[in-house]
Design a protein around this nucleic acid. Sequence first.
DNA 1: CTCTGGCACTCAAGGTTACCGAGCGCCAGG
DNA 2: CCTGGCGCTCGGTAACCTTGAGTGCCAGAG
Lengths: 378, 378
Amino acid sequence: MMDDRKAAILRAVVECYIREAQPVSSAHVTELGNLGVSPATVRNDMAVLEQEGYLLQPHASAGRVPTDKGYRFFVDSLAGPAPLGPAQAELVRMFFARTHGELEHLLHETSELLSKLTDYAAVVVAPNAPEPGRVRSFQLVKLSRRVVLALAVLGNGAVERRSLELPADIEEAQVQQASAALAASLVGSHLERAGSMPRTGDVAVDNLMSMTLQALRKPDPDAAEHVFVGGAARMAAAFDAVSTIRQVLGILEQQFVLVSLLKDVLDRGLSVAIGTEHGLAPLADCSVVVAPYDVDGERAGTVGILGPTRMHYDQAMTAVAVVSKQLTKALSEGGGSGRRTRQKATAEAPVPASPGPAPAGAGRGAARGPRFEGNGHG
Amino acid sequence: MMDDRKAAILRAVVECYIREAQPVSSAHVTELGNLGVSPATVRNDMAVLEQEGYLLQPHASAGRVPTDKGYRFFVDSLAGPAPLGPAQAELVRMFFARTHGELEHLLHETSELLSKLTDYAAVVVAPNAPEPGRVRSFQLVKLSRRVVLALAVLGNGAVERRSLELPADIEEAQVQQASAALAASLVGSHLERAGSMPRTGDVAVDNLMSMTLQALRKPDPDAAEHVFVGGAARMAAAFDAVSTIRQVLGILEQQFVLVSLLKDVLDRGLSVAIGTEHGLAPLADCSVVVAPYDVDGERAGTVGILGPTRMHYDQAMTAVAVVSKQLTKALSEGGGSGRRTRQKATAEAPVPASPGPAPAGAGRGAARGPRFEGNGHG
DNA sequence: CTCTGGCACTCAAGGTTACCGAGCGCCAGG
DNA sequence: CCTGGCGCTCGGTAACCTTGAGTGCCAGAG
């Protein structure tokens, strides 16, 4: 059904189309595919590939163009991890060497890095759960008669804050009492494991404490899912229809949709979703490459890129994998969102450079699991 | 040089071109401009207007199109504040009625509001200076042997955080000592007025304290200039050349450039910059409408929109003015970035609604000063 | 002096035709 | 099973014409 030659032809068509964005003819394939057969033979095979749904002809006398299914086969049959080019490897190295500062800032810049690496739009989803780690410090601050601010500094330096609106006025002394009691109970333990507080006898204080615990346990409603999008302009270059650009931009602006999209793709065990494989109609001409990153061993967020279906999958996948890997490293080693001390990452786990057999398995490993389990080319 | 009729003709051409995006003919002007003259007369005047640089012809047998200078004249001669449409007024009302939550969140949503109101891309620049107000609470938290986190809660509920990297290891007790001393000194006073600390005799503690003060006094290096862009997709709809969209998107992604642009326009006393009036070549086809907003009486940040030179200036200016006004209100009244209590704004200062003579001066006042001082139509 | 109607001119846009050639499908022969 | 050849199809391009919108200019009227 899919002998070696047909596979080779399909691959050649996809590669060529990705490069040139134009229908690929049988002659073109024979030139580039260095399989020793004539165009006529290729034509026959291409006809079959079209019947099987891997290719299609825009019109009768044109070359062939890959379908989503064709891209899927191509991606699934990608084996060699395209190593990063030297210039790109350098970019990554530089970036993670000088990594520091606030989490948000880092993630924002990461989205730009990823976009620069791939020339597509990059998406970085921030960790949604309150970052783990023991509570280092806790405090309530009274802001106005009925508004109290709760501040917790976590082990990694992240600051969780919640503002509480009380049902009734409260005294400064009461706030302080609750603050002290909560601090005594919380500091040194984990936020999510915080149990209920003993009664103090003062109903206002008890109420404040239980509200605080409740608020701390669920994620910050304001923070929502923080998403960083980088390089939308680059994405625009990959399409030529203005309407397509509009639609894609529209999606990129809907943070919730974006997050769902990436999450959905990951949940299905994929690292690449091609064309209509993800459900979003406006992105029918787009593919998505994703990888999760971890913080302290727990899956925390997602990085991904969004480009045209005719994207450079190998490079994109490598870039995403490398960045997610490095991000995991950067976030786990030096500490979380507080100031991270300077990384030794460059020395320890070299970014795969271009030449040679390349220790690229390192960068790839994380993504390899999910990568080949597509609802493939059946 | 610019008699009433010519002015009327010019206005008619601009209005018409803004609506229809097509060269305007003399006949069209006579229809819409209800000045009682024939097309031939209009033609003559239009020829003069072209010589004077207000109009130009795309090609010989086409209608006229406004130049930047033409738009400038039009904008400067705009007098009546176009009131918001009822639907838009409702949007604004709703938005600021439910305003609450973190500053960043609010500003982000404001950019979407503004974009929705105008159908162009909206830009909101966050306040860069640490927010004013007395310090309510201060604390140092030791994160690791050499990293200490400084946390200050300001009067309006905003939290300033700085992480400090020390030159040498420090003890928990020393951090606590410095924390207590600083808290005693800072709480109740203003951050920027904080003087130097008395010596304690422990050089590490003294050093930590002075580093802290120093860090607190300058703005957060990580926060940089925070910019929120909303509705880039809407902007894309206003242009038809893909290359233009790319360029504009590119600018929208360069936060620094964006901030400079808005600041520059404001500094020049303008609230509208048309086409090439701002220096950015890629934005030659764009106009910018800006207005500052205040926090506690001090100019804090900027809101603005970016659209095609043929934008609906009156509506855009109104929207920007109203939003900046309301933002000022929201940020000053209920407190800053902490939870703001529910606004009474709607009752107190009604958003100018559509019908009637409209108390629109309210929404306009803020912007009127700067508005008419362009390097005009000389 | 100003405005108007008329007329000739210009030029982009749209439609028609014809041509070219890339690329396929098919088939007969090796 | 592969190959070379032949005929067919159709998109793309160019040349051409027509159309009509819109101008510029001018002579005449108010």
